[in-house]
Design a protein around this nucleic acid. Sequence first.
DNA 1: AGTATAAATACAATCGGTTGCATTATATAT
DNA 2: ATATATAATGCAACCGATTGTATTTATACT
Lengths: 342, 342
Amino acid sequence: MKSNKEVTIYDIAAELNISAATVSRGLKDHPSINKKTKKRIRETALEMGYRSNTFASNLRSKRTNTIGVIIPRLNSNFMSAVLSGMEKVANEASYNLIISQSLESAQKEALNVQTMFNNRVDGIMVSLAYDTTDTSHFELLLKKGIPLLFFDRVLELPQCTCVMIDNRKAGYEATKHLLEQGCKNIFHITGQLTRTVYAERLSGYKSALQDFGLEYNEANVLITRLDEKAGTDAAEKIMAMSSRPDGVFASNDTSAVSCMSALKRSGLRIPEDVAFVGFNNDPISRVIEPNLSTINYPGFEMGQIAAQKLINHLNTENHINMTDSIILKAELISRASSRRTL
Amino acid sequence: MKSNKEVTIYDIAAELNISAATVSRGLKDHPSINKKTKKRIRETALEMGYRSNTFASNLRSKRTNTIGVIIPRLNSNFMSAVLSGMEKVANEASYNLIISQSLESAQKEALNVQTMFNNRVDGIMVSLAYDTTDTSHFELLLKKGIPLLFFDRVLELPQCTCVMIDNRKAGYEATKHLLEQGCKNIFHITGQLTRTVYAERLSGYKSALQDFGLEYNEANVLITRLDEKAGTDAAEKIMAMSSRPDGVFASNDTSAVSCMSALKRSGLRIPEDVAFVGFNNDPISRVIEPNLSTINYPGFEMGQIAAQKLINHLNTENHINMTDSIILKAELISRASSRRTL
DNA sequence: AGTATAAATACAATCGGTTGCATTATATAT
DNA sequence: ATATATAATGCAACCGATTGTATTTATACT
């Protein structure tokens, strides 16, 4: 009857009449250990039911094989997809993920960074909270040389990689599409412009208007939290406008859908009276009637790429080129909500 | 200029001319340390920028303050809510969460258990994968005395707590509601019946039929993966049936919505021709037209309660009463998809 | 003052891998 | 056979907090 105690490398060493150091090196395939010895070590370890003690290892090697992920909220299909992608890559590289939500609060975001810092994560991936303006809570990471990567809602810091889409282009394409469908007066529902994702989309929106010879009208842009209420607020505003918009480009599907629903309730026809384009390609966009045109946002891919980038960086000695950014494709999906019979 | 090295309790001890043991005890508010000394220790620790080294601590104390969570998929609003609830409670109790997905595969589930086991999590919370039948991968946890808690898709193991809703009752209520709206022939879209959640709902469905004097008809039950395809498959089947159902009770909103959409495309009217009740109260249920009646599933609450239960258990010495189960309320939300003008 | 008792602190072993350096075994060259 | 290079292994310190036990200090009681 074996006792309940854990098997250590010392037990293996004793069993094989070799030193613990050799066992340690053998287990991690160190080049200076004889192949036959390695084999014996591996076999004995297996037999004895050995499992490495992460803490002892971490304590000594000062690495945790853990990556922290801070996201605003775990409530969108997009975020789920991103996390799935990250998890896949991290798992394969035997890294663990610690996920926490900022709940769109800069304060909680700072707290999360602190917690992860204390837990000695090897690196951190962040999508910024809605109201983060002060970014000093990231400084201690950079100071300690803990790699920091931003995705989606990024922050252009000199020492950080960003993984994102070309938001300006996406905003341009969405708006252009509406214009091509004959819209002359396009409303834009967006988020906090301190988040560059939204600022960029707005910029694309403006460019498209310009290219089609239309004046930019500030009254057509509504800054919101991009939740359901944002959509109904927008609808209310739209209904009250003297020259009513004939198109809406929303910076996420949630607000687009809720706005569409509200307008429908007010008796407007989609897309005849108002055409819609959303953002994210959430499942919801294929449920609403008419189906919502939207920008396909490659979440899974983004997660994979972000995690891969960070892990590559962690696994290489030379800590260079962590500074470049990665831009993913994000194309328009045209559905009934924006297609007018021309 | 301070060096980049971390501050340890030895540094604090040296600074204050006391022993490291006293510092260690002082920092965790041990009763046998003088209050004044504690104060000095705390202050010095703060000044010197001390942060505790989790690994050294874990190595010695054999606890990690980490809880593993294994879920089938991170793609539903419900799961997001559960995780949010868990995260909240865990954070407050200064536990970390390691989340991973089984992707509905029993094999990956077993792998995840193994990984978390190796990472020495203090406890594990699991919602079972779709096709898990063999549950031997949980045995090593129980053998090592690592507490295991199931939520939502539970498994009735003698030594485990389960947190769930009364699925039988929910199934009964959903079906009863349809019957009260005049349905005589109710179709049921469900998941793998080895998952008790679905078996229980089916059982409730049967009871309701019986109470209303209707015969149970096996042809009216379709076992699916509860994804979008499940809905369209069900719709196809329904359209092909000789005596067409006039009501559908689906075990999640995703399949309900996709089935509803398909039937609508086939020219059926909801709820006049076919009334619908879903399950989960996903946001999607309030987007589809007509809005989907559904069972409100208190995800956030479930997450909180599950985490609280596990943490309480971890924090108490006497490892008793980890065996009782917790049943949450889940009530029907009646919306247009099932309300017939009577 | 002298002893019993309690409170506060210190000592030192321990947790289990990791790693620089020393040492021994083996292979190759002369 | 001897010298030299190389491969393989061992030694022992180390990472930093924890904790049982011993020791010192403060307090209480005759």
